[in-house]
C-alpha cells in the first residue's frame, strides 16, 4: 500500500451465485484515495458502485462472494487494516465502522431507525466509539446538529425521523456519520432523493465539512455535474469495472476510455447547464448473467477493434498524473 494513501482497492471481484446463474457484479475495480481527497464514482445503475463502497465497510450482502482482490485502509494511527481479511463481525471492523469510516445513504427516510429519536441514534454511535459520559454525549450530539446547520439542535435531538423533512434527515444522517471524526466518509448517492435546492445545500454542507475536518470522501453519484463540482478525482464504472480513473480535469478534458467519452458527449457542455442525469448510450446494458467476453464495453463501443476487443480483457493502462484506463486502444 502506498504511503500517502488512506484507502486502496486492488483488483476487487465480487460475484453472486444465484439459481439463474452467477452474477459478476464487480470485476476488477482499482482505485485509491488520499487523505483529504474527494473521489467521485460515477456509473449507470447496476454498475457496482454501491457494492464497491460496501466492501470498504465489509458489509457486503450475505450472498455475495469476494473472489479476488483486497481493500486496505490506513487508520489515523498508521495501522493498515486488510478489510476483506477481517471477519465481518470482528472487533476491528466494528471499530472501523462509524469510528474511522462514516457512511451516508441515499434514502434519508428509511436509512434512519423509525423507532429511535435522532439524538438517541447519534448517541449510540458516540457510546460505541468514545467514552464520553451521557451528558457529554448529549452535548456532543447537539454540537453535531449545529455543525450540520440544523436549527434548534437541542430540540432536534428529541425528534423522530418521520417528523423531519428529507433535507433535515440527510443532515441528521451526516451528523451521525461524522460524530466520531472519521477520516473517510462514504456517501452513496446522498442527494439523489432530494430536490435540486436541497441537493445544492447538502452538497455545500458536505464540501464545507470536508474542508473543515480535512477528511477523505468517496462520493457516489449518477450525476456528472455533481462530480465536476465536488470531486478531486473521478472513477468511472461500467458493468462492475472501474474503466477509467483520473483527476477531475483529466476526465473532462482528456478522457482516455471510449465509455467516458461517450458519457461526456451525451451531456451538454459543462459551462452550459451543469446538472444533468447521465444519458444512456446507444445499445443496451448487457445482461449481468452473460457478461460480454473481452472488453465488457465492446457491445456498445464506437471504437471497437474487431478480434482484440471481443476476445481479450484489456489490462489497466497507466498515464501521467495517476490517470488509468482499461482499454485496448492504449495498449501498445
Amino acid at each position: 500500500m502506498q504511503d500517502e494513501t488512506i484507502l486502496e482497492i486492488t483488483d476487487l471481484n465480487i460475484c453472486f451465485e444465484m439459481r439463474e446463474g452467477t452474477v459478476n457484479a464487480v470485476n476488477g475495480v482499482n482505485f485509491s484515495v488520499k487523505p483529504g481527497e474527494v473521489l467521485g464514482i460515477v456509473g449507470e445503475s447496476g454498475s457496482g458502485k454501491s457494492l464497491s463502497a460496501r466492501s470498504i465497510m465489509n458489509l457486503l450482502p450475505r450472498n455475495a462472494t469476494v473472489t479476488n482482490g483486497s481493500v486496505k485502509f490506513r487508520k489515523s494511527d498508521g495501522e493498515v487494516v486488510d478489510i476483506l481479511a477481517e471477519k465481518r463481525e470482528s472487533r476491528k471492523m466494528r471499530e472501523l465502522r462509524g469510528g474511522h469510516v462514516g457512511m451516508i445513504f441515499q434514502e434519508p427516510m428509511t436509512a434512519l431507525s423509525p423507532v429511535h429519536s435522532i439524538g438517541k441514534q447519534i448517541m449510540t454511535t458516540l457510546s460505541l466509539h468514545t467514552d464520553l459520559s451521557k451528558k457529554a454525549q448529549v452535548e456532543r450530539a447537539a454540537d453535531l446538529l449545529a455543525m450540520v446547520q440544523m436549527p434548534k439542535p437541542m430540540e432536534m435531538l428529541k425528534k423522530y425521523p418521520h417528523q423531519l423533512s428529507g433535507g433535515m434527515r440527510q443532515r441528521a444522517m451526516i451528523a451521525m456519520a461524522l460524530s466520531c471524526n472519521p477520516s473517510l466518509l462514504l456517501a452513496d448517492e446522498p442527494t439523489t432523493a432530494l430536490d435540486v435546492t436541497t441537493e445544492a445545500q447538502i452538497l455545500d454542507l458536505i464540501m464545507s465539512l470536508q474542508d473543515e475536518l480535512n477528511m477523505a470522501v468517496i462520493f457516489i453519484t449518477h450525476n456528472f455535474g455533481v462530480v465536476a463540482e465536488i470531486a478531486d478525482r473521478v472513477s468511472v464504472m461500467y458493468l462492475g469495472n472501474a474503466v477509467e480513473t483520473a483527476a477531475v480535469d483529466d476526465i473532462f478534458y482528456n478522457p482516455k476510455h471510449p465509455y467516458t467519452r461517450a458519457l461526456l458527449q451525451s451531456i451538454p457542455r459543462l459551462d452550459g447547464q451543469k446538472r444533468r442525469r447521465l444519458q444512456t448510450i446507444e445499445g443496451m446494458v448487457p445482461d449481468p448473467f452473460n457478461l460480454p467476453t473481452g472488453c465488457v464495453f465492446h457491445t456498445r463501443c464506437a471504437e471497437k477493434m474487431a478480434g482484440k476487443c471481443t476476445s481479450q480483457i484489456p489490462e489497466l493502462t497507466y498515464f501521467e498524473n495517476d490517470q488509468m484506463a482499461r482499454c485496448h486502444l492504449h495498449q501498445a
Binding site: L59, R94, G98, G102, M103, T110, L112, P114, Q121, T125
Partner: peptide, 10 residues
C-alpha cells in the same frame, strides 16, 4: 436501509 445504517455505525 436503516439496518445497514446501524451496522455502519459499528
Amino acid at each position: 436501509p436503516y439496518v445497514e445504517t446501524a451496522y455502519a455505525q459499528g
